[in-house]
């Protein structure tokens, strides 16, 4: 018999925030990349590299913060390889992104082998005065680790950057029409490389959050499509920061709910529940595309070569 009363709403919402954070980090980074007109399909590969590098460094140094920093650097470096290939040697973005994912999966399996089954230091829960002591909301919203809030701040920062700053305007111009931006004297390739590296760092943080906080352990292939779901969320969000947040939290909700239903012994086959996040992603993509995809940067995925 199913026992729904075992699912506590407070814990449910708290765990949705935790489970949404890795995807949110990866998705907000990828959104900036796509805003600059580049489609990087290597998010999955960068995330899993971040996961393994973050875990390895955290185990070796005993500090989760070092782990996160290392993860961001490693994935940014991987993203830079993608950037040089697609922006300098003008390779096909789809193929290169796929290559990045395949290489990242191999690299992570190689690095991670000795760390399987180990325990790592994790991030402490923040002790927020006043807010954390609120009766229900305190445990629900204000008893998380720093990365949860950092990811929310990052969404806010990206939104403000794109909307209010001159640099954000240039980035959007490059993504909408790289030829016009080039004619105005902006360095298209440099802007795109910066966006790609930022996206890589975000994906790395997301991956490290999985292996250091969410799970927290290293297992081969542990991202299990989270990077691809982050890509789907960017489409779902119509390339808007606020909607990326909504998308990631919705997705986190589905994941947590299906895990809770599995634990509560719902009369639904386990395979169906485990597949539900992916099915939901497909359904959401269909609904969005049926209404017509709006807001995609006009130069998305197109190679730029300044010919004269």
């Amino acid at each position: 018999m199913m026992d729904l009363s075992s699912i506590s709403p407070i814990l449910l919402i708290a765990s949705i925030m935790v489970s949404a954070t890795p995807i949110l980090l990866a998705a907000i980074g990828e959104m900036v990349v796509e805003k600059s007109g580049v489609l990087n399909l290597g998010v999955e590969g960068m995330m899993i590299t971040g996961a393994v590098v973050g875990f390895a460094l955290a185990v070796n140094t005993g500090s989760a913060v070092t782990g996160f920093a290392a993860a961001a650097c490693a994935s940014a470096a991987l993203a830079l390889v993608f950037g040089v290939l697609t922006q300098v040697t003008l390779s096909n973005q789809v193929a290169t992104g796929l290559g990045l994912t395949l290489a990242g999966l191999g690299l992570s399996a190689l690095i991670g082998k000795p760390y399987e089954g180990m325990k790592s230091p994790t991030l402490p829960k923040l002790d927020i005065p006043v807010l954390g002591d609120l009766p229900v909301l305190g445990r629900m919203l204000f008893a998380h680790d720093a990365m949860v809030y950092l990811s929310l701040l990052l969404v806010l920062a990206v939104w403000a950057f794109l909307k209010f700053t001159r640099a954000g305007l240039i980035l959007r111009a490059v993504g909408e029409s790289h030829h016009s931006a080039h004619a105005l004297g902006y360095k298209v390739v440099v802007v795109r490389l910066c966006a790609i590296v930022f996206g890589g760092a975000c994906a790395g943080l997301g991956g490290a959050y999985l292996s250091l906080v969410r799970v927290p352990q290293w297992t081969e292939g542990m991202t299990a499509g989270a990077g691809w779901i982050a890509l789907a969320i960017v489409v779902f969000a119509s390339w808007r920061a606020g909607r990326v947040l909504i998308g990631a939290y919705l997705f986190g909700g589905v994941t947590v709910l299906q895990l809770n239903l599995q634990a509560a012994g719902a009369g639904v086959p386990v395979a169906l529940l485990s597949a539900s996040p992916y099915v939901v992603t497909i359904i959401v993509l269909v609904v969005i595309s049926a209404r017509g995809v709006h807001g995609a940067p006009a130069s998305l995925g197109r190679p730029f070569h300044a010919s004269r």
């Binding site: 290939l85 003008l90 390779s91 290559g99 395949l102 191999g106 190689l110």
Partner: peptide, 25 residues
């Protein structure tokens, strides 16, 4: 380790895509 072959195969694709610049340019 078995995973080193996986990485090896991924690198192959990278090198191929990078060198394709000579095909088109």
């Amino acid at each position: 380790p078995g995973a080193s072959i996986q990485l090896f195969q991924g690198m192959l694709l990278f090198f191929l895509l990078a060198m394709d610049v000579f095909t088109n340019y």
